[in-house]
Amino acid sequence: MPETIEVVALVRWEAGRLLLVRADYQTAFYLPGGKIDPGETHEQALHREVREELGTGVRDVRFLDRYVADAVGQGEGVRVGLNCYTGELVGTPAPAAEIAELAWMSRAEYLDQRATAPAIVALYADLG
């Protein structure tokens, strides 16, 4: 059975654009978020990851959906379980920690990137 890496992610969708980040070690943009530490709830992990990656807080957190797809850059057969949450940012997001870039992208802009994450493509399809 293939390995599935469980992660949490923040979905900020404004004016037809999704808030995305790219880590300095990745080629694909993805949602702000990351792995859940042992003993953390999904919401605790989301708050920690948003603080680490964007330098902001998040409030009014609500579960949106879960996507399971091939994980980008994690090796053959590794999947990601992307647990998506919505919420309002508290502060202005800026790249922090390992984040090299932050961008607001439409679906078309994302699909024009040289590397994309299958779970993000599926999310865009659901967002419209």
Results as ranks from 00 to 15, higher is better:
residue 5 I to M: 03
residue 126 D to W: 00
residue 30 Y to A: 10
residue 43 E to G: 12
residue 25 Y to Q: 07
residue 31 L to S: 05
residue 98 E to I: 02
residue 4 T to M: 00
residue 33 G to P: 10
residue 65 D to E: 13
residue 10 L to P: 13
residue 99 I to L: 14
residue 60 D to E: 14
residue 31 L to D: 13
residue 32 P to L: 09
residue 6 E to W: 00
residue 107 R to D: 00
residue 24 D to Q: 08
residue 87 G to T: 12
residue 70 D to N: 13
residue 53 E to M: 04
residue 52 E to S: 12
residue 4 T to N: 01
residue 6 E to S: 12
residue 107 R to S: 00
residue 51 R to C: 04
residue 86 T to C: 15
residue 33 G to S: 07
residue 6 E to Y: 02
residue 121 V to Q: 01
residue 7 V to K: 10
residue 4 T to A: 11
residue 53 E to L: 02
residue 73 G to R: 15
residue 11 V to G: 01
residue 66 R to H: 07
residue 125 A to E: 15
residue 72 V to G: 06
residue 5 I to H: 03
residue 69 A to E: 09
residue 3 E to D: 06
residue 84 C to L: 10
residue 48 R to E: 13
residue 10 L to M: 06
residue 113 Q to H: 01
residue 9 A to N: 05
residue 115 A to K: 04
residue 103 A to H: 05
residue 116 T to W: 00
residue 70 D to L: 14
residue 63 F to A: 15
residue 3 E to R: 01
residue 71 A to D: 07
residue 2 P to H: 04
residue 42 H to I: 01
residue 35 K to Q: 14
residue 39 G to A: 12
residue 91 G to K: 13
residue 28 A to L: 06
residue 77 G to K: 07
residue 103 A to K: 12
residue 74 Q to N: 04
residue 26 Q to P: 07
residue 108 A to I: 00
residue 117 A to H: 15
residue 6 E to T: 02
residue 77 G to W: 01
residue 68 V to C: 06
residue 102 L to G: 07
residue 64 L to G: 04
residue 61 V to C: 06
residue 20 L to Q: 05
residue 40 E to K: 15
residue 50 V to H: 08
residue 30 Y to F: 14
residue 42 H to S: 08
residue 37 D to R: 15
residue 30 Y to R: 12
residue 102 L to E: 04
residue 99 I to M: 14
residue 13 W to E: 06
residue 89 L to H: 08
residue 125 A to F: 00
residue 27 T to A: 12
residue 104 W to R: 09
residue 3 E to I: 01
residue 1 M to L: 11
residue 36 I to M: 11
residue 63 F to L: 07
residue 20 L to H: 07
residue 80 V to T: 11
residue 65 D to M: 02
residue 128 G to A: 08
residue 81 G to W: 03
residue 53 E to K: 14
residue 103 A to T: 03
residue 118 P to G: 10
residue 60 D to R: 01
residue 63 F to Y: 15
residue 68 V to D: 13
residue 58 V to T: 06
residue 3 E to A: 03
residue 13 W to V: 03
residue 30 Y to E: 07
residue 57 G to L: 04
residue 51 R to W: 03
residue 126 D to I: 05
residue 102 L to Y: 03
residue 59 R to C: 08
residue 98 E to Y: 02
residue 10 L to D: 10
residue 105 M to L: 14
residue 7 V to H: 10
residue 126 D to T: 03
residue 109 E to T: 10
residue 120 I to Y: 02
residue 31 L to H: 03
residue 13 W to C: 05
residue 77 G to Y: 01
residue 85 Y to R: 08
residue 76 E to W: 11
residue 24 D to I: 12
residue 18 L to H: 10
residue 106 S to K: 09
residue 61 V to S: 04
residue 118 P to L: 06
residue 127 L to R: 06
residue 110 Y to T: 00
residue 72 V to P: 06
residue 45 A to P: 09
residue 64 L to I: 07
residue 61 V to R: 14
residue 17 R to K: 15
residue 18 L to E: 08
residue 56 T to R: 02
residue 92 T to F: 13
residue 125 A to D: 15
residue 59 R to F: 05
residue 101 E to Y: 02
residue 49 E to I: 00
residue 47 H to F: 02
residue 90 V to N: 08
residue 27 T to D: 09
residue 58 V to Y: 13
residue 87 G to M: 12
residue 41 T to Y: 14
residue 10 L to W: 09
residue 66 R to A: 14
residue 44 Q to C: 08
